[in-house]
Structures are given as structure tokens and as C-alpha cells.
Amino acid sequence: MKTRIFRGSFAAVTTLFSAMLLWAVLSLVFMPRWEEVVQSAFSEEMIYSIRLSLLTSLISVAIVMVLAVCIGYVLARFTFPGHHVLRTLVDLPMAFPELVLGLCLLLLFGHGILSQWLKGFGINIVFSQAAIVIAQVFTAAPYAIRVSYATFRGINPRYELVARSLGYCEFSAFWHVTLPLAKGGLFAAMVISFARCMGCFGTVLILAGGTRMFTETLPITLYLNISYGNLAMAMTSGIILIAISLGAILVFELLNREVML
């Protein structure tokens, strides 16, 4: 009897929450009229927004993956004083609200020594399209680093030692053995980063601003159109974002069940 109550109550909570979640998602998909969605999807603003989101996300993912591979490997393989501090530091942005992270970046690139130095070269990051990439990189990198770290930790370092005993230097052993073995995990990191970059809102809004048809990524389109009362455009960008997230999660589940976050 006790077992039944235990199992029943847990199953009920799971079912209730899953149903609410599904309902919320479906209400976005089924509420708008589809003619309006199609019309909005092909509007000039939406096409610009999709293009900019894809372009910035792809650039960001490339940068994030370089960071994730380097930092993940350092954390997984090297022992040094401050190892734990570094781990906490790179995880920190995950715990921050995006708006706070955006504010931190605004201060770094807009008011500090770094901004002065960049201005010396005629580079102004804040409220530019480059700021979108920087915001996306800082938002997505901690997730990718975590997956990459878990992946490298899961690979026995003795594979590298065997490769080195066979004549491969440290980098060659990494390139020919560790990296191919980490392929699945790193692909998962890439998918997660892409999803995070596409959906990055708060950080982009603060650092790049929400300028229509300039720094307008999909989440910004949603935000701006909600503000103007243009519900069809807002819902269309929402649907596109959901489709992208769903695709990313499906790919992640299919390719990388073994990576423990």
C-alpha cells in the first residue's frame, strides 16, 4: 500500500508538470492563425532576424568550441593550484541572470580599460553586432565547457600515454586519440551552445541593445514585437526558437546519452 502511494504520488507530480509544460508549448504553436505565421515568417524583419541569429550563433559557436576544448581539457587533465577556483569561475555565468551578465560585459567593454584600449584601435563593441557575438559567447561557453570537461574526464588518460609510448608527442596524442574519442561529447557541446546562442536574450539586449533591423536577433524580435503589440510576429519568432531548441535537444539526446552534466 505504502509503495503504491509513494509511486502514485511521484508519477502524479511528473504527469502534472509534463502536461502543463506541453500545454504551454502547444498553446504557442496552436494559438496563432497559420496564415499570419507564414506571412510573418517571410517578412523582411523576420528574415533579417533569422539571418542575423544564425550568422552570429555560428560565429559564437566556433569561438565557444575553441574555448570549451581548451578549458575543458585543462580542467580534466591538468592539476594546478586554483583548479577548483577556475572550475567555479567558468561555471559562474550559468548561475547569473542573463541581465546581470550583460551588465558585467557592458561595464567591461563600455567603461573599463579594455574599452579604452579597443577604442584606441577604433573598435567600439557596445551596441554593435560584434557585441551580439560576445554576449552569446559568454552566455553559452560555460555550458559547452561543462560538457567538454565531462567528456575529457570520461576518457582514460592512459589512451594518451599508450599513444605517446608509440612515438606521438603530447599534442599529436591529443589530436589523434583524445579528440576523436571526444567527438560525441564535443558535438553535444556544440549543439547545446548553438541552442543557447540562438536563444540568448538578456545579455544581448544589454550589451548590443535591441535596435530594430540592426542588432535584432530572434529573441529580440519577440521582445520588440510584444512591446509593439504585434502578437503574430512575436509568436512566429517564438515558434522558430522552439523548433530550433527542440531540434537541438533531439540531436543531443540521440548523439550523447553518455555525457553526464
Binding site: Y159, L161, V162, R164, S165
Partner: peptide
């Protein structure tokens, strides 16, 4: 390790 001219075989093989 790559300059030592020693080969190693492990219990769990460590085949790539």
C-alpha cells in the same frame, strides 16, 4: 614518453 623506447600493454588493453 615518446622518447623512451618503451612499449606498454594494459590489463584493459587500451585499444583505440
Amino acid at each position: 614518453p615518446e622518447k623512451r623506447e618503451l612499449g606498454i600493454v594494459y590489463q584493459d588493453y587500451m585499444l583505440f
